[in-house]
Design a protein around this nucleic acid. Structure first.
Length: 278
DNA sequence: AAGAGACCCTGGATGC
DNA sequence: TGCATCCAGGGTCTCT
């Protein structure tokens, strides 16, 4: 499940392979992968275009074209991209092919068909409602204090809300809450200033480390060359149900929050909030 | 407005 | 062994 570190890693590897290469034509093997515009229009607009700039926003990949339109891609759960010689055989889950003029194909592959591409005049048509980048200065304790005040939803759910902060998914939400020692079910409005400062720091630290390790590979995530990340070796709680907490040894617990599996240390992440021993 | 839940989708895991 | 059911989760939508 590609989240911010995975999307950034993919984009860094993809960019040099596609920048400034003319797109000769497009083949939609599974047309619903194209969210907008209508697919014939998408293909017509892409024809002859070049990607002149590559950016990431949250979990979205942004490609600015030489006509100043933007092609935007979201991998959702199982999306992958790769660039191969056009003579290479297709894979069963290839959904969209960008045929480059130099004889290679930029292929979008997605087993579960959740991934989407967009072609728009302005990126805000797709990403306009996203919250700040978690690694930017805009994501700080003051910002999060304001957004969490008086809200009753569990903090885990808000971390996954892309309008709150963009790019965090289930893995990094659990890992950040563990690092900040905050129970995932804590009501947003009950968090203290100190806890929120700790959470902001934890989110940033977890993402920085995951970026350095080129993401987390559990099942599907692959870099464009097929290689995997290594942050799965650094996971403290995610999908470690029943295993000992790395710091206190208590068995990691799994619950469901907002319909998502959630992992935490029941001894160190207390629902009652910070205690004042002594 | 905020929060909860359904839905999309496939294939591997689990249950009987 | 074989079939049915469950589960994974990012984003969008509906309902209350």
């Amino acid at each position: 499940m590609p989240e911010l570190p995975e999307v950034q890693t993919i984009l860094d590897a993809l960019a040099p392979l596609i920048l400034d290469r003319e797109i000769h034509s497009v083949t939609a093997l599974w047309p619903p992968v194209i969210d907008r515009p209508e697919r014939m229009l998408f293909a017509a607009w892409m024809q002859g275009r070049r990607v002149v700039e590559v950016n990431r926003r949250g979990k979205y990949m942004l490609f600015r074209l030489d006509d100043d339109r933007w092609m935007i891609m979201h991998l959702r759960m199982t999306g992958k991209v790769r660039v191969v010689d056009a003579s290479q055989p297709l894979r069963p889950h290839d959904r969209l092919l960008f045929h480059l003029l130099d004889g290679r194909d930029w292929r979008f592959e997605d087993q579960r068909k959740f991934g989407r591409v967009y072609l728009v005049e302005s990126p805000d048509e797709v990403i306009g409602k996203l919250g700040p980048e978690p690694l930017s200065n805009a994501f700080d304790a003051d910002y999060l204090m304001r957004k969490l005040a008086r809200r009753t939803a569990p903090i885990k759910s808000l971390l996954l809300d892309q309008r709150m902060v963009a790019g965090i998914g289930n893995i990094y939400a659990d890992e950040s809450l563990f690092r900040a020692r905050i129970h995932p079910l804590r009501a947003c409005g009950s968090l203290t200033r100190t806890e929120i400062e700790g959470l902001v720091g934890a989110v940033k630290a977890v993402l920085v480390q995951a970026l350095a390790e080129m993401g987390t590979t559990l099942q599907d995530y692959r870099r464009p060359d097929g290689s995997i990340g290594s942050f799965q070796n650094s996971l403290q709680v995610f999908r470690r149900t029943g295993e000992p907490c790395p710091t206190c040894g208590a068995p990691i617990q799994r619950i469901v929050v907002g319909g998502r599996s959630t992992h935490f240390c029941p001894r160190e992440q207390l629902l009652t909030g910070p205690t004042h021993p002594g």
